[in-house]
């Protein structure tokens, strides 16, 4: 059994690591610092941490002002509130000015669990995807969270990093992380499964189940949703001719949309989408919600079987 980690724990530790090395790192939170784990940074660097209270619009505005004075700013809260309540601030003030703000939001997706629909962001990627200058990344596990945070700092410009709430298993033998470059976790020739975030693990499990049925599935970790790795999408289309796209998000506007747009223009192939279909989340345990919203490896397997059964 591989190690279980919370991406947000890794985020908190990585902020500390960065803060010790670079005094221009400044961190902001909106009264959720214990949950987002920015509290660790706050404890060691109280002068470079600002808790703005329950005020997400102000959070993004202050972050922008600090970044305009050459600070590398991290702004954190829950994904639902950071994107949902401050979209105009992200769009007009952070992204339009290309300010160096790293918007790292936690508690995305239904696996937030018992808090229910009001706290389960399923639209955030869609909302950021349409904003120019933004980069969107989401890690598949703990170690990749660190890679993504470091890559976000290396990139001079605004970035949205989407993190979940729950513990996720660490995936072995990952590819080398490079922003904007997806990697193949498992090679296969019959079908491709392109996944991001916690769905990468489910995709790998699905590929194993399919292997037992003599079907070989390629599994791709599309950790950078914007800009999407077009080459990888086209390669999957050409080599396997069928693609299942998996994300813990609405099936509209997110990873599936980005992949579909590339396919429609460059190399149309049959797809299936694993995601939330036009409904809100609800309370429950993460495992129950994974089943309820059809996010399990078995759901991916079914989608693959449906696609593979189609002859045209």
């Amino acid at each position: 059994m591989s190690e279980m980690m919370m991406a947000r724990d890794v985020y908190g530790d990585t902020l500390l690591e960065l803060g010790r090395k670079n005094k221009d790192i400044v961190v902001l939170d909106a009264d959720l610092s214990s949950s987002t784990r920015t509290a660790k940074f706050a404890k060691e660097f109280p002068d470079r941490f600002f808790n703005v209270g329950v005020a997400e619009q102000n959070l993004m505005g202050i972050a922008a002002g600090l970044a305009s004075c050459k600070k590398i700013v991290f702004a954190s809260t829950f994904a639902m509130f950071g994107i949902g309540r401050a979209w105009g601030q992200i769009r007009n003030t952070i992204a339009y000015n290309e300010l160096n703000v790293k918007i790292v939001l936690t508690h995305a997706g239904v696996t937030v669990g018992p808090d229910g629909a009001s706290h389960q962001a399923l639209e955030d990627v869609a909302l950021v995807n349409v904003i120019p200058n933004m980069v969107i990344m989401t890690p598949c596990d703990g170690p990749e969270t660190r890679e993504i945070i470091l890559a976000a700092v290396r990139h001079d410009g605004p970035v949205y990093v989407r993190l979940g709430r729950s513990k996720v298993p660490t995936i072995d033998d990952k590819g080398k992380f490079q922003m904007g470059k997806a990697y193949i976790l498992r090679e296969g020739k019959d079908i491709s499964i392109i996944a991001c975030g916690i769905m990468v693990k489910q995709a790998l499990d699905a590929a194993k189940i399919l292997a037992a049925e003599n079907k070989s599935a390629r599994v791709v970790n599309m950790h950078t949703i914007k800009p999407i790795d077009k080459e990888m999408v086209i390669d999957c289309a050409r080599k396997t001719n069928r693609i299942v796209i998996c994300e813990e998000h609405m099936i509209t506007g997110g990873l599936a949309a980005a992949v579909s747009e590339v396919l429609a223009e460059e190399n149309p192939v049959r797809i299936e989408r694993i995601g939330v279909k036009n409904r809100f989340g609800q309370s429950g345990s993460p495992a129950e919600l994974m089943k309820e919203y059809h996010f399990t490896a078995e759901d991916i397997v079914k989608a693959c079987r449906r696609l593979l059964a189609k002859t045209t």
Binding site: V26, F50, Q57, N58, M60, G61, I62, A63, A64, G65, L66, A67, S68, C69, K70, K71, V73, G88, Q89, N92, T93
Partner: peptide, 12 residues
């Protein structure tokens, strides 16, 4: 939005 931006500049 601007007063927040100005606060960021002041804090910097």
């Amino acid at each position: 939005q601007g007063l927040s931006v100005a606060i960021g500049m002041a804090l910097a």
